[in-house]
């Protein structure tokens, strides 16, 4: 996405005014929910109940953040979101690394080696990116039980690994397709082995696509709710599930400020990644939508 194309369309002053107005209005539309979460997470509960959701806090306090992180009642424990935040990390890190590694190897094979059925295999992997996960919930629950992984972080890692393979394979295959096959042929003639070619020729130039893939998998797995809600127990719930429990628990007073602080906590890792490496995140989104 380069901004350098010369613009051919001439626009008058009135038109430009309208364009800028619309763009500013929509920027506000996209920003408001985040702003509302941020300012209200710093207010005492009385101040929120008194109205003025858009106002800056009069009496700013970090108490809601402290509560969301380590004190709030979630399920039966008053543990805050902290243990669930850690659960998410324990789940995300191995799942992302493994699915990226497998994706890189698969992409290498599917782009540089031809054999019978390779297109079909790629097609089957690609379609698996889009299935509604409802279709696998029941058998997955059963298999996790058989494997002894029910309600465990290891079980969730397996689930995310399996359903992450499709996308990571797609990323690497498309990236390696553009890599000159002649180089690989030449290395083969020189007697370089399969893994040596991968390690010495492809991997060194794979930086950008590794970043794209890691960010994509990280965002998707961190944000997952369905698998966490279906297969985790109280000790392995990821943060999305815990946040939902916190917000929707019907007992007691609704501590909006704590809910907002918790929501920001749950969003923080993916937001930070987006701010730091937004370009790669967008590339992943595009690769996920415009196939081929």
């Amino acid at each position: 996405m380069s901004a350098s194309t010369t613009q051919a369309v001439r626009t008058g002053r009135a038109t430009r005014f309208v364009i800028y107005t619309v763009l500013v209005v929509f920027c506000l539309f996209y920003l408001t929910p985040l702003y509302v979460m941020a300012v209200n997470s710093l207010k005492p509960l009385d101040e929120i109940r008194g109205g003025g959701m858009l106002n800056l806090p009069l009496d700013a306090t970090l108490a809601p953040w402290r509560s969301a992180w380590s004190e709030a009642q979630i399920g039966v424990q008053a543990s805050g979101l902290k243990p669930y935040f850690l659960n998410s990390i324990y789940m995300v890190v191995p799942a992302v690394l493994l699915s990226t590694l497998l994706g890189a190897l698969n992409g290498y094979v599917l782009s540089k080696y031809r054999f019978r059925g390779d297109k079909i295999i790629f097609g089957l992997m690609l379609f698996s990116c889009f299935i509604p996960f409802q279709i696998v919930l029941i058998p997955m629950a059963k298999i996790l039980g058989i494997l002894g992984l029910s309600g465990s972080t290891a079980g969730l890692v397996l689930v995310h690994l399996v359903y992450g393979i499709g996308f990571s394979t797609l990323f690497f295959k498309n990236y390696y397709e553009a890599f000159p096959t002649e180089l690989i042929k030449a290395a083969q003639l020189d007697g370089a082995s399969f893994f040596r070619i991968f390690q010495r020729i492809l991997l060194p130039s794979s930086g950008p696509i590794i970043v794209v893939c890691v960010i994509w998998q990280f965002t998707n797995i961190w944000n997952d709710f369905l698998f966490g809600a279906s297969f985790a127990d109280f000790d392995s719930q990821p943060i999305t599930v815990a946040l939902n429990n916190l917000v929707s628990s019907s007992t007691g007073v609704k501590e909006y400020n704590v809910h907002f602080a918790g929501a920001i906590l749950a969003a923080l890792p993916t937001l930070v990644v987006y701010v730091v490496a937004g370009k790669y995140f967008v590339r992943g989104l595009m690769a996920g939508s415009v196939k081929g």
């Binding site: 929910p33 959701m53 944000n223 969003a267 937001l271």
Partner: peptide, 23 residues
């Protein structure tokens, strides 16, 4: 402007739902 319009895509639907539920 571009990143401002795109950042919600990086959020979990649970976060989005929580924000809008109270908003």
């Amino acid at each position: 402007i571009r990143p401002l319009m795109l950042y919600p895509m990086a959020l979990s639907f649970i976060v989005t739902g929580t924000a809008w539920k109270w908003f």
